[in-house]
Design a protein around this nucleic acid. Structure first.
Lengths: 223, 223
DNA sequence: GATAGTTTCATACACGCGTTTGAAAAGCAA
DNA sequence: TTGCTTTTCAAACGCGTGTATGAAACTATC
């Protein structure tokens, strides 16, 4: 596989640098220096910087979705077509959380790269992102099969909130640590996943007060 | 107040442009063109581009915090020092949600600027952001007074999740709309606020299943 | 109305960026 | 080897950026 060595060297270096420092702060000169190749190599092999980013994103996006769907499928098969709602949420947020927050050693540049991509919204990625919606719709459909009586809008909101909690936890883990003076343990990824999943499920199904389903009580939020 | 007209013109234009297009895509030449002043005016009045951004952020940060704390204080006074937990969360996420998602007319550049600042994490802002932690700690303290028996870690997690849900809803409202085929109504800000607050409160207090408090059940998330 | 201080302006500077170029090097088939 | 293609390399190009300069215009005080 020494066929295109510089190509893979660029991909590896770029993904790592982007994952670590974000798109804005990484120049092509940084990348080629890290990959130990010539400056012109990026343009030769990928055409342009944007095309390199796009290729990175497409590749990783497919891989992430594949992993999510694999977990989802397993959950659905375990439930004869109706997966446990907990398992669905876990399939949605688990892979990313593990890749970004796990112990240093098993953290993947891939997962962290994807988080960067979802945060910084750089031009070449923005155009591709549309497919993500289709991917999420498959999770929404699974949730509908799991809980057929649930209000569809609530399903989308819960899915949205689940991703929100997972993403923010990854992105702002430092703030949470500082805010809680270290009380919130960010090393136990399984516990974090469980917590996010539990809240998402509660957001969807658990109505501790019997608030109306379609119209969250207006009076409640006011003092 | 025609004293320093160009100064305020720059501030207004910069805030609007940054709110609309983000920091990365707005150059000084864009700003001075929108403000209809000379290019050198920014450096003359603010010193540098970074100092302009920093001043914008500090000003707006103080204003936002002031509004949040005003609502918090009102809630605490209404409850004789122990605010309703719903009101606390509403004070935390309400101002920003209203400023960013409300009807076009009452959307504020200020709120959207702050969201940009929280998303893009540009250098001059990153250094100042530490104070935000202190601000959030005041909310955590209020929540502790409101629910003295609650596990402190759970309080921080719920606060973290509340902000996550609010922020993501603002940032990715388009994806939610597309994913739900318009089923999720993003125009009713009050309903959104109520929903975020309700989920945050549930995350904190509502344990529909009697999951152990300190250690979310491991088995639960697996199929 | 002359003077000193403040603000505006057109212009230029230095720098870093992504990209291009053209020649040298390496790979490979005959 | 020879001839052709693919890949690497050093160097430079064009462009847009934030910033600096020095003169002109304005403002206010005497």
């Amino acid at each position: 596989m020494a066929a295109d060595n510089t190509r893979t060297a660029i991909i590896t270096a770029a993904e790592r640098l982007y994952a670590e420092r974000g798109f804005a702060d990484v120049t092509m000169r940084d990348i080629v220096a890290a990959a130990d190749v010539n400056l012109a190599a990026v343009n030769y092999h990928f055409g342009s910087k944007d095309e390199l980013i796009a290729e990175l994103f497409v590749t990783r996006s497919l891989a992430t979705n594949r992993e999510r769907l694999r977990e989802l499928k397993a959950a659905e098969e375990a439930g004869d077509g109706r997966a446990d709602i907990n398992a669905i949420f876990a399939a949605l947020v688990g892979p990313t959380l593990r890749g970004c927050l796990g112990p240093e050693k098993q953290r993947s540049d891939a997962a962290r790269f994807m988080i960067r991509a979802s945060i910084e919204s750089v031009a070449p990625i923005r155009k591709i992102k549309n497919r993500e919606v289709d991917h999420l719709k498959r999770f929404a459909a699974a949730m509908r099969r799991s809980l057929p009586d649930q209000d569809p809008a609530d399903i989308f909101w819960a899915l949205h909130f689940a991703l929100a909690m997972a993403h923010q936890t990854i992105r702002d883990s430092e703030r949470l640590t500082r805010m809680s003076d270290g009380l919130c343990d960010l090393n136990d990824v399984q516990a974090i996943t469980d917590r996010v999943v539990a809240v998402a499920v509660m957001a969807l199904t658990g109505k501790p007060a019997k608030a109306p389903l379609k119209e969250p009580a207006k009076a409640k939020a006011r003092a």
